[in-house]
């Protein structure tokens, strides 16, 4: 088991309405050395993001209050558009991935996700974001990553 220990702990916000999946993700991410926050719907997700300014957000797409895409849009309007968002969904509706990428998704995973690939992607996205911190607006997107 590889751990991705961070020198200064990064915070990840999980927006996921399925409590079990949220818990599994939290265990995984905490074990990898991240600080984890969870929100069970879209509105709570936006609130948490505004209060805590996480380094990365993992968001489900179909959420009870406000779909995942609208979470990302609201954050962009609130000036938090530089927080990378990794979308995750159990749906296979055509066009969903394209919509996520168009919205500037850092990555897109289909459920059930591959945890190793997810952790690798998170490390990669956080690295890229850190490197680009001095150049706001040049947020690099890792496109087309699917579990």
């Amino acid at each position: 088991m590889t751990t991705y220990q961070q020198s200064n702990r990064k915070t990840i916000l999980i927006v996921e309405d399925d409590v079990k999946t949220a818990r599994a993700l939290a265990i995984r991410l905490e074990a990898a050395g991240y600080e984890v926050l969870t929100a069970l719907d879209g509105v709570q997700g936006v609130r948490r993001a505004l209060d805590h300014r996480p380094d990365l957000i993992i968001s489900d797409i179909w959420l009870p209050v406000g779909i995942g895409f609208s979470v990302a849009q609201r954050l962009q309007r609130a000036g938090l558009g530089n927080i990378p968002v990794v979308f995750m969904t159990a749906s296979r509706l055509p066009g969903l991935k394209e919509a996520a990428i168009q919205l500037g998704a850092a990555a897109y995973f289909e459920k059930p996700y591959d945890p190793a690939a997810l952790l690798r992607t998170i490390v990669c996205v956080l690295d890229t974001t850190a490197n680009h911190r001095d150049h706001p607006g040049t947020h690099a997107h890792i496109q087309g990553i699917t579990a």
């Binding site: 399925d18 079990k20 999946t21 818990r23 599994a24 993700l25 995984r28 159990a90 459920k111 059930p112 996700y113 945890p115």
Partner: peptide, 10 residues
């Protein structure tokens, strides 16, 4: 798939 995801991940 939603429950399958958590079963597999746990």
């Amino acid at each position: 798939k939603t429950p399958l995801t958590s079963v597999k991940e746990f």
